[in-house]
Nucleic acid binder design. Structure first.
Length: 109
DNA sequence: ACCATGACTCCAT
DNA sequence: CATGGAGCCATGG
């Protein structure tokens, strides 16, 4: 379960107006290839309010397929509410890709 | 330990 | 672009 815990803490650290990919979280969790397990972790233990699952997207910046932690489209609305431009379920990773090592020192949005 | 599942990712058709 | 198959990993029965 340590893996899940790592995932939760990492996702929790994602700054507002930013998004991280499953691969990114998996990598930080200790397994760059556990992207699948990452998604599984969030699905099984999505601590509401503590883990911004909506900031976690797949490698293309694509949101979850239809459903997610609340309902279809919710993720997109949440991201837009944070300043993340979402298009057809896609976010601009070139702009919103989270940099865990930089720790966001200018999170303005 | 084995089998089945899944918010993933890659490749082929 | 849609669908199917395979590989990857962690969890649960």
């Amino acid at each position: 379960m340590n893996f899940y815990q790592s995932v939760y803490e990492i996702v929790r650290r994602i700054p507002k107006g930013r998004v991280a990919t499953y691969g990114q979280v998996a990598y930080l969790a200790g397994n760059p290839r556990a992207s699948r397990a990452v998604g599984y972790a969030l699905h099984r233990n999505p601590f509401p309010g503590e883990i911004p699952c909506h900031r976690v997207v797949n490698r293309e910046g694509r949101l979850a397929p239809g459903f997610a932690f609340g309902g279809p489209g919710i993720q997109q609305e949440l991201l837009e509410a944070e300043g993340v431009a979402v298009q057809d379920g896609y976010v601009d990773l070139t702009k919103y890709c989270w940099h865990p090592e930089k720790e966001e020192t200018h999170s303005d949005v």
